[in-house]
């Protein structure tokens, strides 16, 4: 037998008719079974992120309705605002940009003690640069304008002088565990990608996008989100977490969708979803938990 005939013999290998029919039958069955299904990974991912977003958007129901004479500060919202005639701070921890929300008990106690021991300064003109909205445990609120150590109540016009500037009293010191947890999730997101790349080496070059279509979609999405967030900020002078989470959820879902569409390995799609989830959790802990 010649060498070419030997190669030809190898080329003529084919599955039997029965094997072909079996395969085709299974493929048809899989079509019927999967035509309505949503991937379990996508479903889990969307469900977790939705719950996460909703848990931040809900209004607390346990606001005190009775007046307590020994009331304590529950939260402080501080917002940069040069406009003397307008008070812009809002009673919500979900305004991420230009406003800070303080819930740390040590900070609140320190601030309350400083206000209790504040002096009454002689009349003077002040350039008030910050809004401070104080919410007490009984639900009552106080609106103050601040300039360094001086605070002016915008309703009673009362002026008090603290021993230290407001900014130093509200200096953000976070719980070490929260910081560790936040940076832990960031590390975990990198670790997941690293271990997945190690496990499935051929996806190393596809970290940002699975294919050209995905890359274009990512570019367009990032541009649109940047325009959207900038527009919302310029229109409302602040940025609510809803917009950030909304953009992030859409972006994360699209990552999973495009990678599935491109036929990426299931393990990498799962890693991609977990990576986005870790980034979302890290952002939540580092930016919302003071």
């Amino acid at each position: 037998m010649t060498k070419e005939k030997t190669w030809q013999h190898l080329r003529e290998l084919a599955p039997t008719k029965q094997q072909q029919n079996n395969m085709l039958r299974e493929i048809r069955l899989s079509k019927k079974a999967t035509s309505w299904k949503i991937s379990a990974v996508s479903l889990l991912f969307i469900a977790v992120l939705t719950i996460l977003a909703l848990s931040f958007l809900q209004t607390p129901l346990d606001i005190a309705t009775t007046t307590d004479e020994a009331k304590e500060i529950a939260k402080i919202y501080v917002r940069d605002n040069d406009k003397q005639d307008r008070f812009l701070a809002k009673a919500s921890c979900l305004y991420v940009v230009a406003q800070k929300c303080y819930k740390n008990q040590d900070v609140l106690l320190q601030f309350q003690q400083a206000m209790a021991t504040a002096k009454s300064p002689p009349p003077m003109s002040l350039v008030l640069k910050q809004d401070v909205l104080i919410v007490y445990t009984d639900g009552t609120q106080e609106q103050w304008k601040v300039a360094g150590r001086y605070m002016t109540n915008i309703h009673t016009q009362q002026v008090i002088q603290l021993e230290q500037p407001v900014s130093s009293l509200l200096f953000v010191f976070r719980d070490q565990m929260q910081l560790l947890l936040g940076y832990g999730f960031l590390f975990l997101s990198h670790f997941i990608l690293w271990i997945t790349k190690h496990k499935v080496p051929h996806i190393k070059r596809r970290a940002f996008a699975a294919n050209v279509e995905h890359m274009i979609a990512n570019g367009v999405m990032l541009l649109l989100f940047a325009i959207l967030l900038a527009t919302v900020y310029f229109l409302t002078a602040t940025l609510h977490a809803f917009w950030i989470y909304g953009a992030f959820i859409i972006y994360s879902t699209m990552q999973v969708y495009y990678r599935k569409k491109a036929g990426e390995p299931r393990i990498y799609i799962l890693a991609c979803a977990l990576n986005q989830l870790c980034i979302g959790l890290a952002f939540t802990i580092l930016f919302f938990v003071y």
Partner: peptide, 24 residues
């Protein structure tokens, strides 16, 4: 099937993976 058969050296696997390829 032929490609998978020579790559995997396993007829049953080649059959399964051919089926999986067309399912995908």
């Amino acid at each position: 099937f032929k490609y998978l058969y020579y790559l995997l050296n396993d007829e049953k696997l080649a059959e399964d993976f051919t089926q999986e390829t067309f399912t995908r």
